[in-house]
Design a protein around this nucleic acid. Structure first.
Ligand SMILES: [Mn+2]
Ligand SMILES: [Mn+2]
Ligand SMILES: [Zn+2]
Ligand SMILES: [Zn+2]
Lengths: 139, 139
DNA sequence: TTCTACATTATAATAGTTCTAAACTGTTGA
DNA sequence: TCAACAGTTTAGAACTATTATAATGTAGAA
């Protein structure tokens, strides 16, 4: 999608120094045609496959959190022993296959607008997300 | 709501032996008028306040998982450093106040039916849950 | 080039949860 | 009635994702 100098721009304009670690992680996260979901562990594996210069685990955590704070990643709320992140930052929803521990996007267009007919005084809505848990259909 | 002999029945009919630990936890979870959300930590605190016979942490975990498996509790999918459980097992949704780490029920009637216009072949839907994240409205 | 704030790193610490294996108990049926 | 056994409890260890620490390195400004 983007080349390194574009990631450097993106980082710089976010107030993040374009270090070689962050650029490498940008390549892995944002170069692919399709968006995807990942855990820190999976990301660490991808990194070690695609480079010889290792990036420390702490830096991977730091970077993912920095990117999440900047809005370049979303964290997906599911009960799991580890956090799931999403390179798709547009408004959308998820299937979660608990058997295979697999997250699948549901396009926003495939969900009728969710209307909540109640509010909490003094609070404003940050996000509305639908999680559809699925399991094998043995019928 | 129920008295001890009714919890004993409930447990027995679920294939769970009615031990004094489980009965005590039933009282704490299911005796109150209103349903509520809790973490294991909060439950442990409630237990130690309401009895002199301490229940081991392992038993609290075991019991909560057993009750969840029997459908007497639900686990709520949110990103948190700990699991949230719900004594309200009916179909409903949640606000999550990230500032106060507070979960609030949204009655199913207050949400227009969520229509998902896509499926995953070979999988059937187990649950459809809406999570509305809110924050302080400073405007 | 020098300076400094920001970033990386190895490693330790933390904390929620699960595991282990020994002791205990509810239930069954002889 | 009570022995036998499967199910349960328990203290503590182990596990594991995540965060903290603090020393070292580096990007960018001047
Ligand atoms: Mn968990
Ligand atoms: Mn988390
Ligand atoms: Zn997604
Ligand atoms: Zn609830």
């Amino acid at each position: 999608m983007l080349n390194n100098s574009q990631y450097i721009e993106k980082l710089r304009s976010s107030g993040l120094r374009p270090t070689k670690q962050r650029i490498k992680i940008c390549e892995i996260l944002f170069n692919s045609e399709k968006t995807f979901h990942f855990t820190i562990n999976e990301l660490v594996k991808r990194i070690s496959k695609s480079t010889n210069d290792k990036i420390s685990l702490a830096t991977v955590y730091n970077t993912v959190h920095a990117f999440k704070n900047k809005g370049y990643l979303k964290e997906i709320p599911i009960n799991s022993d580890q956090s799931y992140f999403d390179t798709n930052t547009s408004h959308h929803h998820h299937f979660y296959d608990e058997t295979q521990k697999d997250l699948i996007d549901i396009d926003d267009a495939d969900v009728e607008p969710v209307k909540i007919n109640t509010r909490i005084p003094g609070k404003k809505i940050k996000s509305v997300e639908v999680l559809v848990k699925v399991e094998d259909d043995k019928s």
